[in-house]
Amino acid sequence: MLKLLPLGAVLATIISTQLPGFTSTQRLQLAQLPSFAEPYNSTSPENNDPSGKLITTALVVSAIATGGYLATKKSKSNPDSKIDQASPKLRKKLLILLYNDSETANRLLAHTQQTNPQKSVNWAMEKVIYDLERDRA
């Protein structure tokens, strides 16, 4: 989350320059200091619109939250995974042995195919299953 903080400041600066409600002094204040912590006490006519700061704050917070979510999100399935090329029966058996960890299944299958490139995907899947069962016995 701390890595995303400079990104949020950059986004706030960029967004504030694009919003029509911001004046040049507000843009300068936003670029120089994180003015979100200061209370809004201005009485000058050009600084009378607090909605611009509110919108910018909301956009920055949502950008940081979205970035954090995307950074922690794991890929559920890989469209070009090796296990999808094997027979459904073997795939089910391997995933049961690996407690539905498809990333590990793909890694083991890729390694077996790399060491035996002349063999089929089903053969490699059977070898991975055999090796797992042998090692657990």
Rank of each mutant, 00 (worst) to 15 (best):
T23S: 14
P79G: 05
V128N: 02
K74G: 03
T112S: 02
V60T: 06
Q85H: 12
A137Q: 13
E46N: 14
N100S: 05
A63I: 01
A12D: 07
T25H: 11
L7C: 02
N78K: 05
I96L: 12
L4I: 00
Y69M: 06
K119V: 05
G52R: 07
D84G: 03
A63E: 02
H111G: 02
N41S: 15
G52N: 10
I96H: 08
D131M: 06
G21P: 11
K92G: 04
N106C: 02
S51Y: 08
A63T: 07
T56M: 04
L28P: 05
L2E: 00
P6I: 01
A86H: 06
S120F: 04
T23E: 13
A58G: 03
D84V: 04
D80E: 13
K127R: 13
A9H: 07
N48L: 14
N41V: 15
S42C: 13
D49F: 10
I64F: 01
N41Y: 15
A86V: 11
P6H: 01
S16M: 12
R27W: 08
T104D: 04
S35I: 15
L98K: 11
L132M: 12
N41F: 15
K89E: 14
K74P: 06
P50L: 06
Q26T: 08
E103N: 10
N47G: 15
P39A: 15
P45N: 13
Q29G: 11
R134N: 10
F22H: 07
N116K: 00
K119E: 07
A58P: 00
M1C: 00
N47Q: 15
L28Q: 13
T17W: 15
I15H: 11
I96F: 10
T66W: 06
P45F: 15
N78D: 08
R107H: 05
R27P: 04
G67E: 02
S120P: 04
A105D: 07
Y130R: 12
L70S: 03
Y130P: 05
L4D: 00
P20T: 10
S24K: 13
S120G: 06
S44T: 15
L132D: 10
S42G: 12
Q18M: 15
N100V: 01
A110Y: 00
M125E: 06
S77H: 11
D131L: 04
Y130G: 11
P6R: 00
N41A: 15
K93E: 11
N116D: 01
Q114V: 00
D49N: 13
Q29P: 06
G67S: 07
L109Y: 00
G52H: 11
S42A: 14
Y40F: 15
W123A: 06
T43H: 15
L108S: 01
N48T: 13
Y99D: 11
I129M: 03
M125S: 09
L59C: 02
S102V: 07
T66H: 08
T112E: 10
V10T: 09
P117Q: 02
Y69F: 09
Q114M: 00
N100G: 00
K3G: 00
K127V: 12
Q32W: 08
L109I: 04
P50Q: 04
V10A: 13
G21A: 10
S16L: 12
A71G: 03
S81V: 04
